[in-house]
Computed example of a mutant assay.
Amino acid sequence: MPIAVLRAVLLTWWEAHGRHTIPWKLRADGARPEPGEALDPYGIWVAEAKRR
């Protein structure tokens, strides 16, 4: 399967079934980040590590 097809399939699946309401994967104002927009990696790491 070509990588472009795999990427499209995975992104389609994520849009339909992905976890979209995870607070630490949103911007500070609660909006979803734009494609390529960087989020604070420390905040994401702390939130993920705390869950375990």
Rank of each mutant, 00 (worst) to 15 (best):
G30T: 07
E37A: 11
R7Y: 06
K50P: 00
W24N: 03
G18F: 04
L26N: 04
E34L: 09
A4E: 15
G43V: 07
A31N: 13
D29H: 08
V5L: 09
R32W: 09
V9A: 08
L6E: 15
R51A: 09
D40I: 05
L6N: 10
R7Q: 04
T12N: 03
M1T: 07
E37C: 06
G36H: 13
P33W: 07
H20R: 07
I44F: 00
D40S: 00
G43S: 14
G36W: 10
P35A: 07
A8Y: 04
P33Q: 05
K25N: 02
A47E: 15
I44H: 00
R7P: 00
A47S: 15
A31T: 15
G30Q: 04
T12C: 01
G18W: 02
W14P: 01
L39K: 02
P2G: 13
A8D: 12
E34N: 04
A16T: 13
I3P: 00
R19I: 07
A28D: 11
H20V: 04
I44A: 00
P41S: 07
L11R: 15
G18D: 06
I22K: 02
A8S: 14
G43T: 10
T12P: 00
H17G: 01
R19P: 01
A8I: 08
H20K: 10
T12R: 02
A4W: 14
V46D: 05
H17R: 10
K25M: 08
R51E: 12
G18M: 05
P35D: 10
R27N: 08
L11F: 15
I22F: 03
L26H: 10
R27T: 08
M1N: 02
K50T: 14
R27S: 01
L11N: 15
G36P: 06
R19G: 01
A31M: 13
T21I: 02
V9H: 04
V46T: 07
A31L: 12
G18I: 03
K50D: 14
A4K: 12
I3Q: 05
K25L: 09
K50N: 11
E37R: 03
V5K: 07
E34K: 09
R52M: 14
K50W: 14
G30C: 04
R51V: 02
K25S: 04
A4I: 13
L10M: 14
V9Q: 05
K50V: 13
